[in-house]
Amino acid sequence: MITSAKYKWIVAITLVVLLLLSFIALTMGPSQISLSQLWMSFSQPENTNIGIGQIVTQIRLPRIVMALLAGMALSASGGAFQSIFRNPMSDPYVLGISSGASVGAAIAIVLGLQVGILGIPFFAFLGASSALAVVYWLAFSLKQSEQNTLLLAGIAMSLMLGAIVSLLLVINREQMESIYFWMLGGFNAISWKQIYIVLPVVLFSLVMLFKYCKDLNLLSMGNETAHSLGINVKQKVAIILLISALSVSIVVSYSGVIGFVGLIVPHMVRFLVGADNRRLLPLSALWGGIFLILADTLARTLVQPGELPVGSITALFGAPYFFFILIKRSRRHA
C-alpha cells in the first residue's frame, strides 16, 4: 500500500506530464509551431499570426481537450468494469458497449435522426445501454467463476454489432464515407461546440464513478462479500454501468470507437498505486487522458500530411497487452 504522501507526488507528477505533453502536442502537426509562437498565441493573441492562432485555439486545442476527456472517460469506465466483473481484461470495448454505441450512432446517421447536436449521442446511448443490458443479464446469470465466459460473450456481441454496422454501410452507400470515417475513430473534426456537450457529461460521469469507488472495491471481492458488507449489488452495478455507458456513448458519438484504452490504462496504473479504486480511478482517468493525447499526436504526425485513425494506434498497443494479461492471469490461476 502506498502512502498518501507518495500518492500525492504521483498525482502531481502525472499532472506535470499531462501539461507538458499537451503543450508539445499543440506544437506538433502538419504545420510546425515553435514553443515561443505557442506561448505568444496564449499570452499576446493580438500580436500573433492569425493562422497560428487559429490552428492552436480552433483546431489543435479542441482535439487535445477531446482526447483528454475521451481518455478520462474510457479509462475510468474500464477501471469500473474491471472491478464489477472482477476481471482485469474487461473494458467497455471488449464487452461490446462501445460497439453498441457505434451501432446506435450509425443508425442515427443512416436514418437521418441527427436531431440537433444531441441526436447522435442520444442514439449512441440507446445502443450502449442495450448492449449493457445484455452484459448485465449475463453477468448475473453466469456463475461468478465463469466471468471469462462473459468476456467471450462480449467479444461475440462486438462482432455481431460490427456486422450490423457493416450491413448499414452496405445498404446505405451514399453515407458510407461519413460512417466509415467516423467509425475509424479520431479527433480530427472536433470543435469547441462538441467539447461543450462532452465536457459536462464526462465530468458528471467521473464525479459519480469516483463517488462509488468504495463500493467498487467491495464488488471486486465478489457479489456475496459485497452484499454482506451492505451493498445492494444489483442496484449498484446497474447504476455504475449506466454511468459508464453514458460517458462511453458521448465519447463514441464524437470520436468513434477507440478500443483498449479502458483495458491498458487501469491495469498499468494498478502497478503504480495498487488496487484501491479510490486511488486507482482518478489516476487512471488522468493517465487515460495522457495516453489518448499521445496516441492522437502520433496519429497526426507519423504519416504526414495524412492522418492515422487513433483507434488503430490504441489497438496496436492494446491487443498485445490483452495477450500479456491473458497469459499472466492463466499463470496465476494455474
Binding site: 472495491n217 471481492m221 488496487a275
Partner: peptide, 28 residues
C-alpha cells in the same frame, strides 16, 4: 459473512482487505 470462495483478483494489500470490514462504518 465469509463465503466459500472469496474472489481475490486484484492486488489489494492484506490491510486494505481487512479495512473493507470497516467500510459500513465510515463514509468516503
Amino acid at each position: 459473512y465469509v463465503p466459500q470462495n472469496t474472489q481475490l483478483e486484484f492486488d489489494f494489500t492484506v490491510e486494505e482487505v481487512v479495512m473493507m470490514g470497516r467500510y459500513p462504518y465510515y463514509s468516503g
